[in-house]
Amino acid sequence: MVALLVSLGRPAVPELPAGGDPDQVDRVLRERTFVPVEGGEAFSTKVPNGGVAALKPGPGTVLDVGSQVQMIRSKGSPPVRMPDVRGKSADEARAALDAVGITVGETREEFDSGVDGGDVIGTDPSTGTEVGAGSSVTLIVSTAVRLPSMLGRTVGSARDELTGLGLVPQVRQVTDSDRSLVLTQSPGPGARVEAGTTVSLVAVP
């Protein structure tokens, strides 16, 4: 009896299986008569940490039977720097963070006299901090109330609007009338204050 050995030629490095499962990659390489060896690490946005992100030599390379092929392990997504979103609306800040692969996991409210209510004070981690792509961060939003001008308005109108904004009007006037006109206010128009702040009005007559 005579056995015939038929050569199939030199094998080519296979394509990576989806997901880069190390056991599966090892098996596929051995089926092609290659010897899998560890080849270090590299960042990858497609393969999770610990999976095989690349082969070296790359897929399609023709090698001798028994050649070594390096498996490059994934270190996960590369780090990104937290962008500066201070002063943006919450929706604009979310969009800016999403654009670099960062998600908002929580929103926290704080008072900041320099930022309008509903706009972003900052983030946690803070601007410039390196985080992994896909990380979840906290958005810090201002609760400040910007004071409108009450000057020249009737006491009744001013009192209603301030109360609606969550503020406490305190009126000094000669005559107890809702029709008296506001002469001064403190804090002044445009000031950013906390909810519950007392706003002093002086009205005449």
Rank of each mutant, 00 (worst) to 15 (best):
V2Q: 14
L8Q: 10
A12Q: 05
V13L: 08
V13M: 03
L16Q: 06
T33Q: 13
V35Q: 09
V35D: 12
G39Y: 00
G39L: 05
E41Q: 14
F43R: 01
S44G: 00
T45E: 12
T45G: 05
T45M: 09
K46T: 15
V47Q: 02
G50W: 04
A53I: 05
K56Y: 13
P57I: 01
G60P: 08
V62K: 12
G66W: 02
V69P: 08
Q70T: 03
M71L: 08
M71F: 01
R73A: 09
S77N: 12
S77M: 13
P79H: 14
M82W: 01
V85H: 03
S89Y: 10
A93D: 00
A96L: 07
D98I: 00
V100L: 00
I102D: 07
E109S: 10
E110P: 10
E110M: 10
F111S: 03
F111M: 05
F111W: 10
V115R: 07
D116Q: 09
G118Q: 04
D119S: 14
I121F: 06
P125S: 04
S126D: 15
E130Y: 09
E130M: 11
A133F: 03
G134T: 11
V141D: 03
S142H: 02
T143W: 03
V145I: 15
R146L: 01
S149T: 07
M150P: 04
L151Y: 04
R153P: 02
R153C: 00
T154W: 04
D160S: 14
L162V: 05
L162E: 05
T163L: 14
P169G: 08
V171I: 15
R172T: 15
Q173A: 07
Q173D: 02
T175S: 13
S177N: 06
S177I: 01
V182P: 01
S186G: 10
G188V: 13
G188C: 03
R192Q: 11
A195K: 14
T197G: 02
T198L: 03
L201E: 02
V202I: 13
